[in-house]
Amino acid sequence: MPETPVTLLRAAMASDATRPFTTFHDDATGERVELSVATFDNWVSKTANLLQDDLSAEPGQRVALFLPTHWQTQVWLMACWSVGLVVVPGGGVSGADLVVSGPDTLEEARAGAGERVALALRPMGARFPKPPAGFLDYAAEVAGHGDRFVPYVAPRPDAPAWESDGRTYTASELAEWGANAAATWGLSAGDRLLSALPLTRADGLRAGLLAPLAAGVPVVLCRNLDRADASVLERRVATERVTRTITGEDG
């Protein structure tokens, strides 16, 4: 069977579930979060169960995703693909079955007619102090769901998974994106990749999730790095033991 992002995560769990999977930095708040493969997979499973059981999500449905560079964006991408949903980054609200938004894009997300979920994106995955009207508070809803996920209908590798710029890409094509990027950047065991690109862009998706999955290496995900002093990146590369930095389209 062709690889998909979901099968790559399963392989990471089988190989070494305790190793770091993602380290998130927000240079506007000073937040740092590190998740192991097992902890990341736990969040993905809980979110996929929320989608499948509470929101009645089914393979082929479209999810308009309005989320910034964040570890919870990685979680939502993997959860959507675990269920077999099509992610539409930053658009497609009118035809979406589900809209997922961060705290800064709620007005855009309100145009969606389907279910709406909001993420507070607060440290440690905390909920909103007061849930926004018309939205489910992700942090409040996800906690009670199981940390193992079994889809009612197994997603197909050749099923649509990502829609961008008028084109739709399958789950297996996304895994190929990751493998090709990992090969281009020469990623191998012992490497640690840093990305400051938005996960809702194709280049950011490759750098911030797909290539690390394909190569089996940790990723350091940076939000608001452009607001930080130039020396911050140099220090982060050293302290996080980064071997490859992707901060622009050319890597």
Rank of each mutant, 00 (worst) to 15 (best):
M1H: 14
P5I: 10
P5N: 07
V6A: 14
V6F: 10
L9I: 05
M13P: 07
P20E: 07
F21A: 14
F21H: 14
D27V: 00
G30A: 06
S36A: 02
V37L: 09
T39P: 01
W43G: 09
K46C: 05
K46T: 10
L51Q: 07
D54C: 04
L55M: 04
L55N: 07
L67S: 02
P68H: 03
P68R: 08
T69D: 01
Q72G: 04
Q72F: 01
T73H: 09
V75S: 04
W76K: 03
C80G: 13
W81D: 06
W81Y: 04
S82C: 05
V86W: 04
V88P: 03
G91N: 09
G92D: 03
V93C: 02
S94Y: 09
G95F: 01
V100D: 05
P103I: 03
E107S: 09
E108H: 08
E108W: 07
A109F: 00
A111E: 12
V117F: 01
L121C: 02
A126M: 13
P132I: 00
A133Y: 03
Y138W: 14
G144M: 06
G144S: 05
G146M: 10
P151V: 07
P155I: 07
P155M: 06
P155N: 03
P155Y: 04
R156M: 14
P157K: 11
A161L: 06
S164H: 13
D165T: 06
D165W: 06
A171Y: 08
S172C: 10
E173C: 05
E176D: 13
N180P: 00
A181G: 11
A183E: 14
T184R: 15
T184Y: 13
W185D: 10
S188D: 13
S188V: 12
G190M: 08
L193Y: 03
L194G: 10
S195E: 01
L197H: 03
L197S: 01
T200F: 00
T200L: 01
D203P: 02
L205T: 03
L205R: 03
A211W: 04
A215K: 04
G216K: 08
P218E: 08
L221Y: 01
N224S: 13
D226R: 13
D226L: 01
D226S: 13
R227G: 13
L233A: 11
L233E: 11
E234W: 11
R235H: 13
R235N: 14
R236T: 14
T245C: 12
T245S: 12
T247V: 14
D250S: 12
D250E: 13
G251F: 11
G251I: 09
